[in-house]
């Protein structure tokens, strides 16, 4: 397995974890269940805040679409198809900027953290790093 293939698999795994995380928060947002938040104790404050929704829709569903895009791109890449590098990189950059904004909200406005949001922030940063690595540094032909 060459470097590019490894990066693509890492992207698939990171996106898969991201999809579980987003879908879990999404399902929680559809019910009135209180959220168990082991480490930070701030999940209810963060996830019930107005910043966690666009209208009536939890932003985690938008996150799920982002992870789906990244996973799809890498799976197509692994299968020997041309990949939508520019779109995925643009989406990852946008996701990174949104992540920075949401971290700012958690630190300075809500003064509370949510485990699931922090996991998502880590995954978005990891995905952007891997995308940059794939696109600009050490880019070679993908051999499958």
């Amino acid at each position: 397995m060459n470097k590019e293939t490894t990066i693509h698999w890492l992207l698939v795994v990171a996106s898969f974890i991201g999809m579980i995380d987003s879908a879990y928060i999404g399902f929680i947002s559809l019910t009135d269940t209180l959220i168990p938040c082991g480490l930070t104790l701030g999940c209810d404050k963060v996830l019930s805040s107005p910043y966690s929704h666009l209208g009536n829709v939890s932003i985690s569903w938008i996150g799920l679409l982002f992870y789906l895009l990244v996973a799809s791109n890498s799976i197509f890449g692994l299968s020997g198809f041309r990949q939508a590098f520019k779109i995925t990189l643009a989406a990852s950059t946008l996701a990174f900027l949104i992540t920075l904004y949401l971290l700012y909200i958690q630190i300075f406005i809500l003064k509370a953290f949510c485990d699931y949001c922090l996991l998502s922030a880590f995954l978005v940063i990891l995905i952007l790093g891997l995308q940059l690595k794939l696109n600009f540094w050490g880019k070679t032909e993908l051999s499958i």
Partner: peptide
Amino acid sequence: FVVAAVGVA
């Protein structure tokens, strides 16, 4: 992948 992720969630 989508079905598995949503299922696990």
